[in-house]
């Protein structure tokens, strides 16, 4: 093994210790709060912009490429930009989450809007669904599987961006701050335990929320594999 990497039993013990340590739990809560604020912003802006781009061709021509460019940028690459703009603040971290995860929601939402099966549109039209009614009652629901795909990816992207942000904005209390301290003082076992917790939170939210949501939607929409 690599020097200093702890045994599984040591790591398990440290994970349990951390999860009962009030200082750590405060930091974890801080991280989750930032993630919640950032993610909520991503959902609102991403779906809003995605629906607009999907609906209006001119908007898509104008801003579609921007969404692709923003999405191509790794979340971590926004951190220096955020710090330069807002200083070493919590807001800089939230800003990083938003820029790191919004693009994928915009792209998936607008693609879903554009890829609605023509048959469903035609069925709707013969029953009087046109214009705004068609948009809200046929197009948006039909695009839902793609929208949820985007939301799930955005959660993963946002979680990465949060960690990148917290590592560099180390003055803000959170998981990132905890990790950087362990790294500086070379406390490898504690560091590994923390990394494990970060991964666990990611897996837990993905499994409990997004996989379930996606699965139920895929079954209902008849696209389950």
């Amino acid at each position: 093994m690599w020097p200093g990497v702890p045994a599984a039993s040591t790591t398990a013990r440290l994970v349990a210790e951390r999860l009962t340590d009030p200082t750590f739990l405060t930091a974890l809560a801080g991280s989750l709060r930032r993630m919640a604020i950032g993610y909520a912003t991503v959902v609102v802006i991403g779906i809003g912009a995605g629906l607009t781009l999907g609906r209006f061709r001119a908007m898509d021509d104008l801003l579609g490429t921007l969404a692709v460019v923003i999405n191509a940028m790794p979340g971590a690459a926004w951190v220096p930009f955020a710090i330069a703009l807002f200083g070493l603040t919590e807001f800089a971290i939230i800003f990083t989450i938003v820029l790191g995860a919004t693009g994928i929601v915009v792209i998936n939402t607008s693609a879903g809007i554009k890829d609605v099966p023509p048959l469903l549109l035609q069925a709707g039209r013969t029953m009087g669904a046109r214009g705004t009614k068609q948009f809200w009652h046929v197009i948006v629901p039909a695009a839902m599987p793609r929208i949820v795909d985007g939301l799930r990816l955005a959660w993963a992207f946002g979680w990465r961006a949060l960690m990148a942000g917290e590592l560099l904005v180390a003055s803000v209390r959170g998981m990132g701050q905890f990790i950087s301290q362990m790294a500086k003082t070379r406390q490898m076992p504690e560091l590994v335990a923390l990394m494990l917790i970060i991964a666990m939170v990611g897996v837990l939210v993905d499994g409990l929320v997004f996989r379930r949501l996606e699965r139920s939607i895929r079954v209902r929409w008849g696209t389950a594999s």
Binding site: L119, L120, A123, M127, G128, K133, P141, W221
Partner: peptide, 29 residues
């Protein structure tokens, strides 16, 4: 809505129940 189509592939809305599908046109109206 005086001429309604029944398509070969049924073209039901997968996000609506049977009741929701049958209500759809009436809701649009």
């Amino acid at each position: 809505t005086d001429r309604v189509v029944v398509f070969q592939e049924a073209a039901l809305f997968p996000w609506l129940t049977v009741l929701g599908n049958v209500e759809f046109g009436l809701k649009m109206a």
